[in-house]
Amino acid sequence: MSKISFEGIGEVAATFACEAEVQAGQVVGLTGDGTVGPCESGGRICGVALSSEDGYAAVQIGGLCRVAKTGEEVTPGFAKLSADGTGGMKKDEAGGTEYLVLRVESDGMVIRL
């Protein structure tokens, strides 16, 4: 366990309407005008749901945050990532978007949105 925390630095959040399947902590994508939903595997993310209640979600759209990871190993530095289809992100050299990865843990990573 690290004594350094990057989470919450520069956090920018916005409220969106959301689909019923959205859960706090998962990456989400735009599904309509001002609406977010779960991302399919390989999808681009809009941000990370901080909360979801009564058809609305607070979504972190900027700053440093922790996301779950699956698949190939990711190393700190710039990496192309996309949604993994289960609420986290995965390495995606072919179709991903480049993010700065600050820390990699066994089940997650800290990235800059």
Rank of each mutant, 00 (worst) to 15 (best):
78 F>T: 02
4 I>R: 15
60 Q>G: 03
20 A>Q: 09
51 S>F: 13
22 V>Q: 14
33 D>Y: 10
43 G>P: 04
59 V>D: 07
109 M>Y: 03
57 A>T: 05
62 G>A: 04
77 G>Q: 02
73 E>N: 03
50 L>Y: 04
64 L>A: 10
22 V>S: 13
22 V>Y: 15
96 G>L: 00
63 G>P: 01
11 E>W: 03
108 G>H: 07
58 A>T: 12
54 D>T: 09
27 V>D: 00
55 G>Q: 10
52 S>K: 11
31 T>M: 01
25 G>P: 05
105 E>V: 09
97 T>W: 04
15 T>Q: 11
107 D>Q: 01
49 A>C: 08
9 I>P: 03
10 G>K: 02
59 V>G: 06
10 G>C: 04
97 T>F: 02
104 V>A: 01
19 E>C: 13
19 E>T: 14
5 S>Y: 14
91 K>L: 10
46 C>H: 14
108 G>Y: 03
77 G>R: 07
43 G>M: 09
87 G>M: 14
91 K>G: 00
54 D>H: 10
32 G>F: 11
29 G>W: 11
35 T>S: 00
99 Y>N: 04
87 G>K: 07
57 A>R: 12
17 A>C: 08
106 S>Q: 15
19 E>Q: 14
18 C>Q: 12
95 G>D: 08
22 V>R: 11
89 M>T: 07
93 E>Q: 00
10 G>R: 00
63 G>L: 05
86 T>M: 13
95 G>S: 01
55 G>L: 04
8 G>R: 09
23 Q>L: 10
37 G>C: 07
29 G>E: 02
69 K>W: 02
95 G>A: 10
90 K>W: 09
45 I>C: 01
104 V>N: 10
1 M>H: 11
34 G>R: 14
1 M>T: 13
45 I>Q: 00
50 L>G: 07
86 T>F: 14
92 D>F: 02
52 S>L: 07
109 M>P: 00
39 C>V: 08
83 A>V: 08
62 G>Q: 06
68 A>E: 10
51 S>P: 11
42 G>E: 04
57 A>H: 09
33 D>W: 15
87 G>L: 14
15 T>C: 12
78 F>Y: 05
21 E>C: 09
2 S>P: 03
44 R>A: 06
56 Y>W: 04
63 G>Q: 01
91 K>D: 01
56 Y>R: 14
47 G>K: 02
16 F>M: 06
33 D>I: 12
8 G>N: 03
9 I>C: 03
26 Q>M: 15
104 V>C: 12
75 T>M: 11
30 L>S: 10
25 G>A: 11
57 A>K: 07
101 V>Y: 08
89 M>K: 09
33 D>K: 11
13 A>G: 01
93 E>A: 02
58 A>K: 15
86 T>K: 13
37 G>H: 10
103 R>T: 14
2 S>R: 10
62 G>Y: 06
27 V>K: 05
91 K>C: 00
